[in-house]
Write a protein that binds this DNA or RNA. Structure first.
Lengths: 211, 211, 211, 211
DNA sequence: TATGAATGAGTGTTCATTCAT
DNA sequence: AATGAATGAACACTCATTCAT
């Protein structure tokens, strides 16, 4: 009845009818949660936009929360996989960290919806799922921190600032991207990635290089 | 039904009964919105915790949204005022920016509730109020950017990264504080502020100082 | 705050500020009750439109119901007085009834707001006030019926239809005026009055005149 | 809270539990709206009297307004159908109009609740639904007017009063029935119908028949 | 005569979820 | 694998009225 397709714009991306029902739901949920927020999106709107019935949704997902959780898992898996690549690569740590940093910005910008949901709706997850997401997130950050510590041990990075702080600062900036970055603006994701990585790496240079 | 004994979370901080009703509501709202999120806080809980009736709340605030907006205005006013101080101070731009950066971290950490609400619930504001908040926020960022540009003109800061990007990156990290900083942890607000400012300023050093 | 003056049009008839407060309230109430209906008009809107405070209203009227009742009383008094004039006049009963019938249509059309309220909101009155209004209304109808009976006795009107039925039928049509008559239409109140009176009187002619 | 035992008014006519939910709601709504008025009937009372839950009601009707609208549609359909019969019948126009007029009175008296709601609560409908009802109502009146014009053309009825006015006057009286007719009084619906039709038709006789 | 803060019961409506089929 | 009628608790908000001043 109510066809709330309107709203934030975006080319009426009706999900591919050929896609399996769970994927269709996941993709529609990602879009709607990002556009309207998790709590402003009703299950009714969701299933209508996905072209399935409520019953079908509850067949695949235990709850609306569960759908949100599934969205998170998809994002986390993707990010973790990419980072693993940079961590395991060859080359000077400075270059590898720069590449990893630029890449996380780039892929974040390519999946702004996911990020938007991530930081806006994380607190809507039930305690247990929240813990699971946080755990995986922490693992991701630790991998990143490991690279910084590697550079600190090798003398490439400053040691007067804890690696933790640097990681936190950097990801804070990354997460914040979804609140200001506009895909139709003049800055490409790669450009922002380069700038961010430059600033980040420059911040990590040992202070004595300035003397 | 209207249960006037507060109920929930944090050292049962019943707001000072002597405080005027609007202030009481504002302070309770800040706490509850931060604890449970805006959407998860019902008007009923709110007024119960503040020890007033719904009618009283709607006498002073037009809606639940309006209460959220009032919380925002209070934060924005405070932040804007502090920044103005640093911008107008004397001394080398590098030192003034370092001080301003450290201060914004420090005061953010001292008002984590506000920040948490800010970035979690901004999207729940109605369009018009959202625009007003964004406008004021932008003015704040521009003032900060002005300091960076001043340093770029004087040669103190690198010019190969836009001031905009630097501002955005820094505030991204600041906003993110509310998701990880714990007041009862080992890092003081001042310490985090110092680290953040160090990293930030180091990131802004002209690249040639490295050569 | 909310200045609902808009709505049904009508030249923003702000009531004369020089008028005594009770009259101002009465006149504003008549307009708003007719425009939006009794229950859709809040006391807040009412006092705002009248330019007084709630306290002032409750000083003069015991309740919102009471205000409605006062509106009724004003109308009833006016109608009763006019009818008395026609009943007591000289001349053939047919002519006097025709004049009275045309007049009630005319004055109804001149006070459409009152009529609209009368039939739309009568059921919102509390039992006791409702009874009072009905009683006065009945007295009015009986006076009208008296004129018909006078004509029946004198042989001017048919006797095969009860006078009651004729009165009821006629006033039904009169009350209904407020649902279709438009002051800016092509029919004047006097014209409608003449037509209605013609039909009414013709209906009352003794059937044998047709033979 | 959700109290499934009905509560109030009239020989506790609990609606047939076997009836489908929408019909049950419609029938209960008709009764309650007529008894207490639309505004004075809360959705809570309504569903309690119908023995269903609020959720069930909102499953079938979009709003309380929508329920009122559904009541209207049912009445309008019934009336329109009956009138069509008389308009299409054989015989002198005077007799057919008399029969139609008597019948509309009779069926109105048989469905007083519907009529009461019709004229008391029409103004509570939202603009768009109001327009739909008015449109159908107008069509009904025009059909009736068509019969009068037919008689005017054939010389059976007077032509010095517009057919429109006659229709309006007659239906005004019909609508008014719900405010005074009592089913337990001494007048049967058929009797009132006959009287009304007599008066109405007599009023339409050409004036020269009086000479 | 008038104010306006405060009351508190009540309103229509929403919505995630269940379950017989 | 999927339907859709039904649930029931919760929600934001309204409003006539009171009362200390």
């Amino acid at each position: 009845m109510d066809d709330h397709t309107a709203g934030g714009g975006r080319a009426d991306t009706a999900p591919d009818r050929a896609l399996p029902v769970p994927d269709r739901l996941l993709s529609v949920a990602t879009r709607l949660f990002a556009e309207r927020g998790f709590e402003r999106t009703s299950v009714q709107e969701l299933v209508a936009a996905a072209g399935v019935t409520k019953g079908a949704m509850y067949h695949y997902f235990a709850s609306k929360d569960d759908l949100l959780y599934a969205v998170y898992q998809r994002v986390l898996a993707m990010q973790t996989e990419r980072l693993a690549g940079f961590a395991a690569a060859e080359g000077p740590i400075g270059e590898r960290l720069h590449a990893a940093a630029a890449d996380v910005v780039h892929t974040t910008v390519d999946n702004l919806d996911d990020t938007r949901i991530f930081f806006r709706s994380l607190h809507m997850l039930p305690e247990d799922k929240l813990a699971a997401v946080r755990k995986e997130r922490r693992a991701y950050h630790e991998r990143f921190r490991g690279m910084i510590e590697e550079g600190q041990r090798s003398g490439a990075f400053r040691t007067d600032v804890p690696a933790d702080i640097a990681v936190t600062q950097f990801f804070g900036a990354v997460h914040h991207l979804s609140t200001w970055y506009r895909p139709d603006g003049e800055l490409s994701g790669a450009a922002v990635g380069a700038y961010f990585a430059d600033l980040f790496l420059a911040g990590l240079r040992p202070p004595e290089t300035a003397g």
